[in-house]
Design a protein around this nucleic acid. Structure first.
Length: 391
RNA sequence: CGGGGUAUAGUGAAACGGCUAUCACGAGUCCUUUGGGAGGAUUUAUUCUGAGUUCGAAUCUCAGUACCCCGACCA
């Protein structure tokens, strides 16, 4: 992609109506645009990141037997009256239509599976826009009124089968956060079931200062607890804890018969498992940034490399990279070197390639990784090989 | 939903109750520029909305709305 043609632009100054790091950087770098509190457009760069996260999530869901569907956002009142949740204030209601906007999908998936499932267990998921009338949208894309979510629902004929699958999902989630670069910062924490379940549930919490949860991590066994159920003593017997701010990037629940019963699905127990796709994106930015911009982990970055032609054009190298299947953003704009370099840092693509008269004299390009300071000269004829080893 | 704050061009800022609302950046057009945000020419506004005070309001008052932060809430 040529940067001169890309539908986006960078902004030098922080928007005055955003305080969170993720919103400031994503807006300045041209990934997202704010329409209202907790309502954002995703521009091409932002959408590329989302697609990458979705791809990771899909692959891991499919590996554990998940089948993808797409359910509607418009939900008839009747479905929600069956479970007694029509009154939930978080749900946006459309006056005079007896419709509400979906904030979760138990009321839709359960009758759907009842109708179409010919055998159990079944694992059905979707990646879809959720609407929630948040009493306080905040922190950029971390807590939105409209956001992308992956929700998986499992249906089993026994508790044991549910328990087994629950553990599989746990593993799949860890793989997802690992591939998104968040492994080191993400902890499984025990939480109460909240609105969805009377039993214990688990949350995946990513440690970040802008998080809105407090978790307590046991210094002895690493087990973590959400503040809401924390009782100062770990299952391992330890009373030594560390308190940290975190953001909930996913959660898993055993629902039991809570939703299958009202829809007359006899002897079926359910589980539900969510990941906030856009929230994960925000969490990544919160974790990976420095004072000049974003530092995208490899697998979620919008491009593999950012090619800059400074005082010379780099068309040949650009074409060559593309021919070899490397996702490249090529800054071909008629801008000063300083501006290109600053934008490059801000956008945060993992590898920077510079071609200039200076490097051209040596038949080289200059390589710099976004997360390192080191500069490296690489011969142009060896560039493709070099980059392929980096991916 | 309680508390606090803010609202002027696409973005960030300035303007004592008083002259044609100013500046920088961005965006558009033209020329020169290219290793850390370059220069010139030219274009770019219903001062959030509504009412009030006043000879006169971006500026003061009231109401509304939007946004930010703290808390409550939150799969």
């Amino acid at each position: 992609m040529k940067q001169s043609e890309l539908f986006t632009k960078t902004i030098k100054e922080n928007p005055k109506d955003e305080k969170s790091i993720n919103a400031q950087l994503l807006i300045r770098a041209g990934f997202i645009d704010k329409l209202g509190a907790g309502i954002y457009s995703y521009l091409p760069l932002g959408l590329m990141v989302i697609e990458n996260i979705k791809k990771i999530v899909r692959e891991e869901m499919n590996k554990i037997g998940g089948q993808e569907i797409l359910m509607p956002s418009l939900h008839p009142k009747e479905n929600w009256e069956i479970t007694g949740r029509w009154g939930v204030e978080e749900m946006y209601k459309i006056k005079d239509e007896n419709l509400g906007l979906g904030w979760t999908h138990e009321e839709i998936i359960t009758p759907l599976v009842k109708k179409y499932a010919t055998a159990f267990p079944k694992y059905i998921y979707q990646i879809q826009t959720k609407f929630r009338n948040e009493p306080r949208a905040k922190s950029g894309i971390l807590r939105c009124r409209e956001f992308l979510m992956k929700d998986l629902y499992s249906f089993h004929t026994s508790e044991d089968d549910l328990n087994d699958y629950y553990e599989k999902v746990k593993e799949a989630y860890f793989k997802i956060y690992d591939r998104c670069g968040l492994k080191e910062k993400t902890f499984l924490t025990v939480a109460s079931g909240g609105e969805f379940s009377s039993s214990i549930s688990h949350e995946f919490q990513t440690i970040t200062e802008s998080g809105e949860d407090d978790i307590y991590t046991c210094k002895n066994c690493g087990c973590s607890f959400n503040k809401e159920i924390f009782d100062s003593k770990c299952d391992c017997g330890s009373t030594e804890f560390e308190e940290k701010k975190s953001i909930e990037v996913g959660n898993i629940f055993k629902l039991g018969e809570k939703y299958s019963k009202p829809f007359n699905m006899d002897n079926i127990v359910m589980g539900c498992y969510g990941i906030g796709i856009t929230r994960v994106m925000g969490a990544i930015v919160e974790v990976f940034n420095d004072d000049v911009g974003i530092i995208w982990p490899k697998e979620v970055a919008p491009f593999n490399v950012h090619l800059l032609g400074l005082d010379t054009d780099a068309n040949e190298i650009y074409n060559d990279l593309q021919k070899n299947g490397i996702k490249v953003l090529y800054d071909d704009r008629n801008k000063s070197a300083g501006e290109k370099l600053n934008d490059c840092d801000l956008i945060g693509i993992p590898i920077r390639i510079i071609l200039s008269k200076k490097t051209l004299e040596k038949n080289c390009v200059e390589i710099k990784r976004r997360n390192e300071d080191k500069l490296e000269l690489v011969e142009i004829k060896k560039l493709i090989e070099f980059i392929k080893n980096e991916l």
